[in-house]
């Protein structure tokens, strides 16, 4: 998959990061995903996707503060990069553009 094209799960994770703003980290994304879509993803799956997104340069990360709940460990907080934002917008635009070309009727008959 090229740099510009997003997988479905990747896109969702990117959206969650955008949604959560300053508090986007692995577990948080995972829980938000569950809340928004009803999908329960393994934390490992989310981490794997985040690592892939970071490799693609769509997100960047920094370490947050330790909390007691995490056993004194720090969170890794993710934010979108410019190209991350661009990828999301592009993905949305493509879909919208296709949607607009589908007549109302043909959807109903599906």
């Amino acid at each position: 998959m090229g740099k510009e094209n997003l997988g479905e799960f990747e896109e969702l994770v990117l959206l969650m990061i955008a949604l959560l703003k300053e508090d986007a980290y692995g577990l948080g994304i995972c829980e938000e995903l569950k809340k928004q879509t009803g999908r329960s993803a393994a934390i490992g799956a989310v981490h794997a996707t985040l690592s892939r997104l970071a490799n693609k340069g769509l997100v960047k990360s920094s370490l947050g503060d330790p909390t007691k709940e995490r056993g004194g460990r720090r969170k890794r907080l993710f934010t979108l990069t410019a190209s991350g934002k661009k990828a999301l917008v592009r993905s949305r635009d493509i879909k919208v553009s296709i949607w607009t070309q589908i007549p109302e009727l043909s959807i109903k008959t599906i």
Binding site: Y25, C30, T67, E69, R74
Partner: peptide, 15 residues
């Protein structure tokens, strides 16, 4: 290098 964040998430989730 990944251990801290992963364990952190996992422990929080566990709790």
């Amino acid at each position: 290098e990944l251990l801290e964040e992963i364990l952190g998430d996992l422990h929080a989730h566990f709790n």
